[in-house]
Amino acid sequence: MIELKHVHKAFGSNKVLRGVNLTIESGTSMVVIGGSGTGKSICLKSILGLVSPDSGTITLDGKDVTNVRRSERDSFLARFGMLFQGGALFDSLPVWQNVAFRLLRGSLKRPKDEARTIAIEKLRRVGLKKEVADLFPAELSGGMQKRVGLARAIAAEPEIIFFDEPTTGLDPIMSGVINDLIREIVVEMGATAMTITHDMTSVRAIADNVAMLHDGVIQWTGPVAKMDESGDPYLEQFIHGSAEGPIESVR
């Protein structure tokens, strides 16, 4: 279980997170929605320790992980997989080495052949052929890069997977494919998932629970089935994408 309590983070005078409280139960899929620039990514990055919060605590299975010691960082991060918004593939490495990155070095290191076999298997899992393994990321289309990113996120079979805007920049069909893949993988692996997105189709496809982040706090959280009758004006405006409502359309 991941728990954020009163997490604050400011960059200069810009207060991005103003007391975020959020609980993600183990084995469930949480989707955090909210407009651009509301701090969704910062929220996610502060759990991973890529950004350190100014105050508040983040716990993982009851253990405080707000400031993980460097010596414990490797084993802490080994529990996570992450799909970055732009894929964030290493363009100096061929696809299979990207997917098997964690398996080629560090505490989870395997023999090269085994790592390659696992990489090809994970590529197959996300619907990519074996031939893709030896290409470089720059030779792939955006949708394929996302799939490779997804394969890399699940390569070491993490307990917790983060998805940062998994469908942004993809066409509706590819978005559907990625959404289905995420759902399947999360269910299949029994992983805890946290996704940030502003694509409502994604939300309905991926989420068990939904949280809406606005003005640096969680405005509403609950099961996805109750999202449509929440009665929360912020959430309703967001779901319907209307310009009228409590969320200013000019930000």
Binding site: M82, F84, A88, F90, R102, G106, L108
Partner: peptide, 16 residues
């Protein structure tokens, strides 16, 4: 370029 395309963040999350 690695930094702006989040590749550095990706390195960190991959325990490197």
């Amino acid at each position: 370029t690695m930094k702006v395309t989040e590749q550095i963040d990706a390195l960190v999350t991959l325990s490197t």
